[in-house]
Design a protein around this nucleic acid. Sequence first.
DNA 1: GCTACTGTACCGTCCGGACGGTTTCTTGCC
DNA 2: GGCAAGAAACCGTCCGGACGGTACAGTAGC
Lengths: 176, 176
Amino acid sequence: MGKADDTRDRILDAFERLVLEHGERAGTIAATADAAGVSKGGLLYHFGSKAALVAGLAERLDRFGEAEEARLSSMPDAVRVFLRESVEADLPIDRTIVALLKLGQHDEHAAARDALTRLDEHYLAALSASLGDRDLALLVVRLSDGIYLRSALGGTGSLPPDSVERVIDRLEALLG
Amino acid sequence: MGKADDTRDRILDAFERLVLEHGERAGTIAATADAAGVSKGGLLYHFGSKAALVAGLAERLDRFGEAEEARLSSMPDAVRVFLRESVEADLPIDRTIVALLKLGQHDEHAAARDALTRLDEHYLAALSASLGDRDLALLVVRLSDGIYLRSALGGTGSLPPDSVERVIDRLEALLG
DNA sequence: GCTACTGTACCGTCCGGACGGTTTCTTGCC
DNA sequence: GGCAAGAAACCGTCCGGACGGTACAGTAGC
């Protein structure tokens, strides 16, 4: 881990945070450089363009996705763990997901959408294995998407934590 | 329905289409005016600012939301109808929803997020009444959100219609 | 004479990116 | 061990262009 890698990470963290908290428009090169404590020129040394910045986040998500698939695949109660974490939604992976969700809304950031699709496939693979039913796995992943969407919208009216617990119980009753 | 109202609708249609198909950034005042066959000055005569344009779409969604609540509330199989239409997702209301979803990602368009929250409450009210259980209604609405999110991302991997049909069956078995 | 526009010119701001210059680290050679 | 030299890491500024919004003079039709 050289100094350069460290700076790259700091820049990506700053970019992620800006997009996450203030929307895609806030993730400008200048603002990101500023938040990362680097000059604009310095940022462009590491990420030659805005697209490279998005690609950097996408790559980060890919690493998370592989780890998640491996982790969930070895769990008997993968669905419960998966859904509960969708609701918490403040782990590093969640921050990257929501940032890429916001970026992906824009035409030109196909890389963000592609990364999310790949993550989707990781989750689907893990949950299909755990459930033995791809249709149901799809349903569970879509439900999680819905929860993320509310979180991305910052809506208060999402899911009260206790009701989620009840919903998970009933879903498991259905699946069991 | 005077000429002015007609022009307003044409402008909103164009705005909605631009945002829907090319993202929030594409919905500029100039581009919208152009697509609506109106001069920029003409657009600003009807909608005095960008915010007014967003508010116009939000108002449109409010009207849809009230109609939807009334329609679903009087249906015995509201859940099935609701979910199936989430998957189809090409009705006028769906276009407005997805456009506002994209707009709502941006910090300053709180009006878009608020309108979506109000729609959420309409749906929740209708489905709670139909199901007699608010937690389950929440689950169903979040599932629909997840499907919309994929549609907003332009992802192909939403839910294949036939699998939705199977999932609805199983959901109803659980609920019944 | 009022409503519903058109068209153009313009302002201030911000954006992505290019670029030239400067400091800091590394490496090979004596 | 010392030191030149180049590579890596980083700085600050400038540019062309787009954006939201304003202003205003003109015009067609009811």
